[in-house]
Design a binder for these strands. Structure first.
Lengths: 143, 143
DNA sequence: CTTTATGCAAAGAGTTTGCAATAGA
DNA sequence: TCTATTGCAAACTCTTTGCATAAAG
């Protein structure tokens, strides 16, 4: 459990340090998977914060803009979810039962994307990929 | 421009044939890229349909359920978009400027996903991937 | 004739915004 | 002290739902 205050990370991006921002980054940094706005809000309440929901929306937008967090979505509902940006390129294996994720750092898409963009005369900007499956726990619960 | 009525496709899935459903499938079958609910609704209006928005929502849910269409989303806004299901596994190269898409049928993820799931003891259910770039037109417009 | 689909209006979520009060540097 | 952030409430947008009517088979 990391308990830093993320002051440096915020300042490096020209963002003011506030308790809310610090708590949000700590929650995401310790989360095993990307969280929705509502989940972040509820976790803050659990920790005793009196933050308002609109602050969470505004903060997530600012943190995404400043690349301290990454916005993703899973294909079951396409809702935005946020994860702490660890600055490594990676992908997620997502459980379709419980949304638990496993992250993996090797990527089969990079070269493919480059040659596809070359062929189609696109300027490559990025890619997104998730793998979906049923995790061992959900498999055994189903039996 | 395909102008079939999609009666067979609907019946095969046990869905009743209606003018709305037929028009929606025709619009998607002819669309160069996945369309949002609103875009589908507006295209129907353009064609003189008096469909209501709630019908579009209900129809897209039914068509997705019955796998006549596929629901996707692009990472800029994660809004649900729908494309005609041509029953081939494929991926999209999406222009970040104009959302125009190019579809490609070769897939670098399949084997990777299988071995990852094997290693993590997940039961593979699928994957999602899009490549993002700037298309030739948007590149030259930017200059 | 029976069942499913549709339109309409209202309700429900989720998200954004204006403005005054507050907290950070 | 000055400026950016926050809370609150209202506004907005997107999506779902109930129910009476219409259309499909």
């Amino acid at each position: 459990m990391k308990t830093k205050d993320y002051r440096n990370e915020l300042n490096e991006k020209g963002m003011k340090f506030t308790r809310h921002r610090s708590m949000i980054l700590m929650i995401l940094d310790n989360a095993p998977n990307p969280l929705s706005i509502e989940e972040i809000f509820l976790k803050m309440k659990e920790k005793g914060s009196k933050v308002s929901l609109s602050t969470v929306y505004r903060t997530m937008e600012a943190l995404t803009e400043n690349e301290l967090v990454i916005r993703t979505a899973f294909m079951d509902d396409n809702r935005s979810r946020y994860e702490y940006n660890r600055k490594v390129h990676k992908h997620l294996l997502v459980c379709t039962g419980c949304s638990r994720t496993v992250s993996v750092e090797d990527c089969p898409v990079e070269e493919y994307a480059a040659s596809l963009c070359f062929r189609e005369c696109f300027e490559l900007t990025g890619h997104r990929m998730e793998i979906y499956g049923i995790c061992p726990e959900c498999k055994s619960n189903a039996k």
